[in-house]
Nucleic acid binder design. Structure first.
Lengths: 158, 158
DNA sequence: GGCATATAGTAACCTAGTTTACAATGATTG
DNA sequence: CAATCATTGTAAACTAGGTTACTATATGCC
């Protein structure tokens, strides 16, 4: 029983019913992404755009210079993807871009009033979704879930 | 302090350091997806193609007729996405498609020898990654993590 | 100053996946 | 049997995102 050829043996270590932690995570993520997708849809933005605007808001609150390069760093998004996303956001009238006076290569990104308003609302909506999503857990369970997640993140961080 | 306008108040309920469960989940998923992406890359397949082939293998083991429509149902993938993915898999010599004799609209998808071999190896690799990813937890913690995840999935299933 | 090297951003191209609309066949019911 | 309805799969157009290769500017070093 030690060696079998591919057509006879099953590679599945767990039955689908049994559920490996990875497969469970997969299902969880599908649900979570779905919930987020619905929100982003309402606001007509993508996940990426949300991440960018949330970072931008963060910078604004920290009074850090919001150049694209800094956003790339902070939001951990590919710089080309960011470049294009910012253009879209500009088209949509949510941000505008102004060349920096200090470093003329770089571009400062700033919210329009609309953009700032939208990201505020979106963040609130996401946080509400978050609450809802985990509302089936007790305080204790939630604390435990967070602690475990933190461990796993820590155990797998580069 | 009850009412503030958007430019003054912060919508962030949690500090980034504090970490809402959703944000933690986001980070976890980023790591997990990254790990999977590296594997899929090695095998030159996409996540979608992996899911499809895993479903197909499942059908094969259950001796169920592997039509595209059945795959769509089981893998919960959009039928157009599946149609195109299958074509790619055929191009890559991993499956072939043969019109069904019973229902001439439908198409039966079958592994080639290469395809079957590849999905076996990929599944093993994914399961190893899975083990690795959660290896920082003790047995007990893992059991607890799974139980909590199952609760959340159950609490958010349609 | 002047040359090498790093950095900010982008244009052009590529791929995966989604939406919409449709053709072909099968099932159902009068 | 014929008219209607459902199912299977696809073509075409579109979008988001990523890769490669490039321009322009800045910085460091002699």
């Amino acid at each position: 029983m030690k060696q079998q050829n591919a057509s006879e043996s099953s590679p599945f270590k767990h039955d689908q019913a049994d559920d490996s932690p990875g497969f469970l995570l997969w299902k969880l993520v599908a649900l979570w992404q779905g919930k987020l997708a619905r929100i982003f849809n309402e606001f007509s933005i993508t996940q990426t755009q949300f991440a960018i605007m949330a970072s931008l808001l963060w910078f604004e609150q920290q009074h850090e210079p919001p150049t694209q390069a800094r956003l790339v760093e902070h939001a951990k998004i590919d710089k080309m993807t960011l470049s294009k996303a910012i253009r879209k956001l500009e088209e949509a009238g949510l941000v505008h871009r102004e060349p920096s006076a200090i470093d003329t290569r770089s571009i400062q990104v700033r919210f329009t009033a609309n953009g700032r308003e939208l990201i505020h609302q979106a963040i609130v909506a996401v946080e509400r979704a978050d609450d809802e999503f985990f509302s089936c857990l007790t305080e204790q369970q939630l604390a435990s879930y967070k602690a475990l997640t933190i461990s796993i993140v820590a155990g797998n961080s580069p």
